[in-house]
Simulated scan of single mutants.
Amino acid sequence: MKMNWILATRASSLTVLVGALALAGCNKSETASEGTTEPVAATNVDLSHGGWWCVEHGVPEEECALCDKSLVAKFKEDGDWCDEHDRPESQCFICSPKRFDKFAATYEAKTGHKPPQPEE
């Protein structure tokens, strides 16, 4: 009987602790992208579209030609274009997954965490 009380007390304490941590870490800046509540590594950086990082494509928003079509002409003009995958060659992780490393390093330097893997 005493063992059951101890286990119940520990379980209650653990539940309270987990709940407190969940509430403390619950804010929009910690969601993987708009419309989802999947948590990513705790940061103070807005990861939704409109923030500084494009979670969907794995590059900074300001450099994401897949989201901002106005950037396409400049990438093509600079000879940085993958015709096969219709994106900048420097951002074509399909042709070379290692290209993501440069962008991941930028993300890590800013946040102290590894970036989420690009969805596309």
Rank of each mutant, 00 (worst) to 15 (best):
Q117Y: 14
D80N: 13
A8C: 07
Q91H: 14
V16G: 02
I6F: 15
T37R: 13
D46Y: 09
A42T: 02
S12M: 12
G58A: 14
T9Y: 14
M1E: 05
A109N: 08
W53D: 02
D80K: 06
A73N: 06
L71V: 12
P88C: 13
F100G: 10
M1W: 04
E89S: 12
G35Q: 06
E120N: 07
V18F: 09
P116A: 09
N27S: 11
A8P: 02
R10A: 15
A8D: 11
T37M: 12
K74Q: 09
I6Y: 12
C67L: 11
A32I: 00
S13Y: 14
C26H: 11
R87C: 10
E34I: 10
L23Y: 15
L66Q: 10
W52S: 02
Y107N: 01
R99S: 05
T37A: 14
E56H: 05
K2F: 11
T9W: 14
C26S: 09
F75P: 03
D83V: 15
H57P: 06
D78M: 04
E89G: 10
V59C: 08
L23H: 11
E34Y: 07
S90R: 06
L21S: 03
D80C: 12
I6Q: 13
S48F: 05
V45R: 00
K69I: 05
Y107P: 01
L66F: 09
C67S: 15
T43S: 11
W53A: 02
K110V: 01
G25K: 01
E34V: 08
A105I: 02
A65M: 10
P39Q: 03
L14W: 13
T31L: 08
A20D: 08
S70T: 15
E61I: 06
V40Y: 02
C95S: 11
L14K: 13
P97W: 07
K76A: 04
E63F: 15
C95M: 06
G50Q: 04
T106S: 01
P88M: 14
M1H: 09
K74E: 15
P39S: 13
L21E: 03
T43E: 03
T9D: 09
A41G: 03
S48L: 09
T106N: 00
T106D: 09
P116K: 00
G58Q: 09
A22L: 10
A73W: 01
G35T: 04
V55R: 04
A22G: 04
A109Q: 14
K98W: 06
D78H: 03
A11I: 09
N4C: 03
L7T: 00
E89A: 11
L47H: 04
N27M: 05
T37Q: 11
C67P: 04
W52H: 03
D86L: 10
V45Q: 01
A41Y: 00
N27Q: 07
E120K: 05
T106L: 05
D46I: 05
E61L: 03
G35W: 02
E38F: 08
W52E: 01
A104N: 06
W5Y: 15
A104W: 07
R99C: 06
W53R: 10
W81Y: 14
L71K: 08
R10N: 11
W5K: 15
G79T: 08
Y107F: 15
C82R: 02
E30N: 14
P97F: 06
S13T: 13
E119I: 08
T37D: 04
E61Y: 03
C95R: 02
V18D: 06
L47Y: 02
D101R: 12
V18S: 05
N44C: 02
N27V: 01
H113V: 01
E34P: 03
